[in-house]
Design a protein around this nucleic acid. Structure first.
Lengths: 232, 232
DNA sequence: TATTGAAATTGATAAATATCAATGTAAGTT
DNA sequence: AACTTACATTGATATTTATCAATTTCAATA
């Protein structure tokens, strides 16, 4: 397995094909009341503790999934890119949102109403099977996330998160990927202080693994970062 | 919500009713080839990377769910108590086990074969709905786990894990709960070094929150620990 | 009962990380 | 172009946590 496949498999929810190639009747149900909403960077799609109204699909942009501690600190545990679905957990578990979804950059997001989604799930055996498969896969992703936080250093986690962000911001083309994320958010992903993440980036720059320009990060030595991340 | 309800809700997978009150036909399918297996403390039920053969239910005892880092360190991310199911993620995601299940104390565990489980899931709409609900709930549990690791101190995490263990080892009766766990395992749960966890326990003893006797821990001041844990 | 061995505990110290307080820098605004 | 403002960066320092090396304790076993 290549590093990229490994990242997609072990660190990504991989739910982009949830509704692909379903029978027309189901597609119709899903699309019945679908609307596209535009979000500016920083705007929230939904908030922790709110009652869920439907599910979302990132059409364009990036969305961070985060939760606040009781003392108001932000913990980012996932970043969604184009074609990823979000918000279905709260609908399926019949609970309030356990997390917030906030646009990381200007984004375009499809909304599917709760009743349409549930109707599709209840009607389509294929869809509910897919959901079971996807949700079970998420278990693996979370195990890796807790392992990383529990057992790896800030330096290792910083490198890993840059690789993860590369897989979110890269578009598969040959052109260099621009990772757009401010230091506070990156620190919240890594699980450290902003200043600590800045120092890690500084080290990485000195080691010629990356370059930065303001809030943008460019990876110059991918396998070097893989080595630093010390995972797999 | 009481602290106990909160722990059960936010930090437990809560899957003990997965197969409760299903139609007889489904029960029959599930029980068709069910066998009970006995495990000594330390014996593994299944191992990370193996191909799943079925699902399990803890009848008696406790089972730790853990994964190894690439450098061989053990990360424990969950403890199952009586009536909890395990091993269904790998079956449903059609992947190899992402984690190992190891008996924490002598345990008695039911085994349901893959084909029986899948037959039940495919036949029973109620069961697959329940699985969707349970798996979605797990999402919340994992968010809390990553948040705790990312944002809380070793002292706070030590206190929280004692509360979680109390909910696993307690039997609801008035008699004092004996939490049986060695320092290495407790450190693996907390995400710290054994010596650090020993020092935290020493502090807690001095603060009269707990007492210990060899590998057993007794909580003396529950709400004191809740205060130290600093969650909710 | 004496012995042994595994596990818990302690102490000293090193290393990693967080915090606090400035300072620098670039993009947008007046 | 000067001015703001929001971030990024840096330095100094405190705090937390890990590591290493003994030492102690207790339960099982000879």
């Amino acid at each position: 397995m290549t590093i990229n496949e490994l990242l997609n498999n072990q660190y990504s929810f991989n739910n982009h094909d949830l509704f692909s190639e379903l029978p027309d009747t189901i597609c119709k149900v899903i699309k019945a009341n679908m609307v596209t909403v535009y979000y500016k960077a920083g705007q929230s799609v939904f908030n922790e503790g709110e009652r869920p109204k439907g599910i979302y699909r990132v059409k364009k942009g990036k969305v961070k999934k985060s939760t606040l501690t009781n003392f108001g600190a932000q913990h980012i545990f996932y970043v969604c890119k184009e074609n990823e679905y979000l918000g279905y957990h709260a609908i399926l578990s019949q609970e309030l949102y356990p997390d917030s979804a906030i646009a990381l950059v200007d984004s375009e997001i499809d909304f599917i109403a709760e009743k349409d989604f549930l109707k599709a799930v209840n009607t389509s055996h294929v869809l509910s099977q897919r959901l079971l498969k996807n949700l079970s896969h998420e278990f693996r992703v979370f195990i890796n996330a807790t392992k990383m936080l529990a057992k790896h250093t800030v330096r290792e986690r910083s490198a890993l998160n840059l690789l993860i962000l590369e897989s979110k911001f890269g578009n598969g083309s040959k052109e260099e990927t621009e990772i757009v994320i401010n230091r506070d958010d990156l620190a919240s992903m890594v699980g450290t202080a902003k200043e600590s993440v800045v120092r890690m980036l500084k080290d990485f720059k000195e080691e010629q693994l990356i370059t930065t320009k303001r809030s943008s990060i460019y990876i110059k030595d991918y396998s070097g970062l893989v080595r630093v991340a010390n995972f797999q």
